[in-house]
């Protein structure tokens, strides 16, 4: 994953689409349904984030100078 403005902009689009769908669902149904849908999205997002951070730490440990690096 890159760490620059373009990568963060991609996240703006992801959030806009996700929250946009939650807004549409809320307006079409009820606040409770919208809130539950948003909760599901938040859980999926958190799970994705945890997986990404684990991979990041694994890569960091394998880097030169890291504890698991083999020369």
């Amino acid at each position: 994953m890159r760490y620059n403005e373009a990568a963060v902009f991609k996240w703006v689009l992801i959030f806009a689409v996700a929250v946009g769908s939650a807004i549409a669902l809320t307006l079409l149904t009820s606040g409770l349904v919208g809130a539950l849908y948003a909760l599901v999205l938040a859980i999926i997002g958190s799970w994705y984030g945890i997986r990404w951070s684990r991979e990041w730490w694994r890569n960091a440990r394998d880097r030169p100078g890291g504890p698991d690096h083999k020369a």
Binding site: V19, G31, G34
Partner: peptide
């Protein structure tokens, strides 16, 4: 700031 507003808007104004 933009992402936070999208969440604030949904939470405060829509839900």
């Amino acid at each position: 700031v933009d992402i936070m507003w999208i969440i604030v808007f949904f939470t405060v104004y829509i839900l």
